[in-house]
Design a protein around this nucleic acid. Structure first.
Length: 585
RNA sequence: GCGCCCGUAGCUUAACGGAUAAAGUACGUGUCUUCGGAACAUGUGAUAGAGGUUCGAUUCCUCUCGGGCGCACCA
């Protein structure tokens, strides 16, 4: 049981309240943990909150359990009860990092749960743009966060390889002429051009529109050999291109679903549902009457008899649940589809009842360009890959870096710039400004790891476990120590609330505190001796040898441990964000 | 028109209904005869507007203004 839970238990017992929340404090003057229970109780009982807090505090001070790890309790502000942890608790946490290494911070709180994360979902024959990159970055991180908490994770990718957009691209190919550039990237560019050609023709040219619908029909019924061949060849071009990107951003999928794989099944399910009266006929199409449930109607099979995205999703859900039977299925998809998913989930409740309460839509915000609106229809897109390449180039220009390291830093910079913002928040993207290498950025964290590596490599004494005793802490040391102890709770929160940005903020805060410590204290060849008079205060006044002095060696060992612990936690945290930290940079 | 989401320093973003609204960037001033300067320190600067609920509101409710997205055969 965590320290936090143990404090909560005592608080629950003493206060008699069932729901007690205990929070980390941002301000060190307010201790390690803070509790607002007195404020809440005062409201319902009509008492003075401060007096009540004092009352609770005096009961708490008599708890033998609490005295094992709590050093000081104070009532502050309107009636908060603040707790300071004993230094040994924090130091033993440091030893835990040393023992558990890359396992440190993980938990099994979600053990036994199977979660399917469905993300990325690019469409073949269309560009893979920065929005996809944000999606894949987000999905991968969520998957890793859930794994870190013990869940069994299935990574799924649902790729659109049939539908009108393909027909537009094929029509475009016919218009501009078939051309195989024989290069993965150039093939993707060529398809992007073909798609925007077909797409704009579709809107302004009635004849083109008709032709595109004919091609769309052929894609489904495979009635034309020439189109079939063109389709399967160019489809593979896209898939090869996507595979390169997945590899580049460290994502591997357990299962690739395709629209081509589910549409037939989806259509059958929809027709079956029509018989049962779940779906209805309307104006020649087959629809789900969402409006009967406060939602809106949606077409599942078009008047032409073609299954729409909606019907395909029925087939997809059927397949996903029969293959994996996940406890939760999380679709990482943009917010514009929120209303769509509400309708689909409702329809699924009737058609596939086992999905009820297990389908979730986690929307992530748009990536908007400062320069103007992005649209693959008009060809005005910024490719995901271009961002990575640009970042890499500017890193090489600014620093002497070998290619592999520059790539690692570029990926870190781009991913971090997406993840540090709240999931639902739109990102306003500027090609030059957004990929930051300084301050609150991926490279800053990577740099800090490299710095810890460098210091540790120079250390002659590797026996860091001897540090723990008799060290009097400087304020900067204590600050880092406290930050380190929060890691596991942060990743649990980040997973639970789908908020990778919480982890980003935490890691930046930790790195920043370490760098402050680093700038003010020597780690190697320490030459300061501390006396009793330099003690920090009652909470952390730990004294030392008989003469009241800390030995240099002990200080050095402790600082090395602090350095190693910081490096380890930063590495573990970056790993969860899907970012590698180079040994040197 | 109906519905959903969003307005926080010049810019990009934080903040379970809590304590002095937190950072980065930019701009200004500094630190360092560097255990890695992609660093550290320091200054200027913000909750769109009006009501309401509350001991307490960036957060919840109502309205106004401003932006985005959905709402039938695209995905």
């Amino acid at each position: 049981m965590s320290i936090k839970d143990r404090i909560i238990n005592v608080l629950t017992e003493v206060s008699g309240e069932k729901v007690v929340s205990l929070e980390f404090t941002e301000n060190p003057n307010f201790g390690d943990y803070s509790c607002n229970i007195a404020l809440i109780m005062a409201k319902s009982e009509g008492k003075n909150p401060r007096a009540l807090a004092e009352e609770i505090k005096s009961k708490l001070s008599q708890s033998p359990e609490l005295s094992k790890f709590v050093d000081k309790i104070e009532v502050a502000g309107p009636g908060f009860i603040n707790f300071w942890l004993k230094t040994d608790v924090l130091v033993s946490n440091l030893m835990q990092i040393e023992e558990e290494k890359e396992k440190y911070g993980t938990s099994d709180s979600l053990k036994g749960q199977k979660i399917m994360f469905e993300y990325a979902h690019p469409n073949t024959h269309k560009a893979f743009h920065i929005g996809h990159l944000r999606n894949i970055t987000t999905g991968e991180t969520l998957a890793r966060l859930y794994e870190a908490n013990g869940a069994e994770v299935v990574r799924a990718n649902y790729q659109g390889d049939v539908g009108l957009h393909i027909a537009k691209a094929l029509w475009g190919i016919k218009r501009i002429g078939f051309d195989d550039p024989k290069d993965v990237k150039k093939r993707a560019e060529y398809l992007g051009k073909a798609y925007s050609t077909g797409s704009s023709a579709y809107e302004i040219d009635e004849k083109a529109k008709e032709e595109i619908h004919v091609i769309n029909g052929i894609i489904y019924d495979k009635s034309d050999d020439e189109i079939n061949k063109l389709y399967s060849e160019t489809r593979q071009w896209s898939l090869d291109y996507f595979a390169e990107i997945y590899k580049r951003v460290y994502t591997k999928f357990d299962r690739f679903y395709f629209e081509s794989e589910v549409y037939q099944k989806g259509k059958e399910i929809a027709l079956e549902a029509l018989k049962k009266g779940i779906l209805k006929e309307s104006e020649g199409a087959i629809i789900f009457p969402g409006s009967e449930y406060g939602l809106h109607d949606r077409v599942f099979i078009s008047g032409k008899g073609v299954p729409t995205y909606e019907a395909k999703d029925l087939g997809l859900a059927k397949l996903q649940f029969s293959e994996y039977n996940p406890d939760k299925l999380i679709h990482t998809v943009g917010p514009e589809q929120s209303a769509y998913f509400q309708v689909i989930f409702k329809a699924l409740e009737f058609i596939e009842p086992e999905t009820k309460g297990r389908e979730f839509h986690v929307p992530y915000g748009w990536v908007r360009l400062k320069e103007g609106k992005m649209s693959s229809r008009t060809g005005n897109v910024v490719l995901g890959e271009k961002i990575l390449d640009d970042a890499k180039e500017s890193i090489k220009k600014a620093y002497k870096t070998e290619d592999g390291v520059a790539e690692m830093i570029a990926v870190g910079a781009v991913k971090y710039s997406f993840l540090k913002t709240g999931l639902a928040q739109d990102i306003s993207f500027d090609l030059k400004e957004s990929i930051s290498l300084e301050g609150n950025s991926g490279p800053y964290l990577q740099y800090t790891v490299a710095r810890t590596n460098s210091v540790l490599a120079k250390a002659s004494n590797k026996r860091m476990s001897e540090y723990a005793n008799n060290i009097k802490l400087e304020i900067e040391e204590l600050t880092v120590l406290r930050a380190l102890s929060r890691f596991s709770e942060v990743i649990a929160n980040a997973a639970k609330s789908y908020s990778p940005n919480l982890l980003c903020n935490y890691l930046y805060d930790l790195a920043s505190k370490f760098n402050t410590f680093y700038a003010h204290n020597r780690i190697l060849n320490t030459n300061d001796e501390r006396t009793k008079d330099e003690a920090l205060g009652p909470a952390h006044n730990r004294i030392i040898s008989e003469e009241g002095k800390t030995k240099n060696e002990e200080v050095g060992n402790f600082r090395l441990a602090l350095t190693a612990g910081t490096g380890q936690v930063l590495k573990n945290g970056l790993q969860l964000l899907g970012i590698d930290a180079p040994e040197k940079m």
